[in-house]
């Protein structure tokens, strides 16, 4: 992975990285990429791609409402509230 490619990824993830961090992370990301690439040596001829290890049947649920019991604790976990709204710095 190249430096500039990494810069784009950081930008998309809204991460601000210092030059030192960039250097270090690019190196680590490259190691990971190589590790994943080693999988490409596996022989997959005549194998159907799957998304999950064992999909026996569709995982769906009926269209029924089951309200979450503890909604207010979700609100309490926020840094700042305005009435029941989550309050954040202006992002317009």
């Amino acid at each position: 992975m190249e430096q500039d490619e990494w810069a784009v990824t950081a930008e998309l993830a809204a991460l601000k990285l210092s030059e030192g961090e960039k250097k270090r992370l690019v190196k680590q990301a490259e190691q990971m990429r190589k590790l994943y690439l080693s999988m490409s040596s596996a022989v997959v001829d005549n194998l159907e791609p799957t998304t999950h290890a064992s999909v026996v049947k569709n995982r769906v649920r009926k269209d029924e409402v089951k309200p979450f019991k503890d909604v207010d604790t979700l609100l309490d976990a926020s840094n700042e509230l305005d009435d029941r709204f989550f309050l954040i710095p202006n992002v317009l």
């Binding site: 709204f85 954040i88 710095p89 202006n90």
Partner: peptide, 12 residues
């Protein structure tokens, strides 16, 4: 999202 003056209100 409701944009107020210097803050944004979120309703999910």
């Amino acid at each position: 999202m409701i944009h107020a003056n210097d803050a944004t209100l979120l309703d999910y």
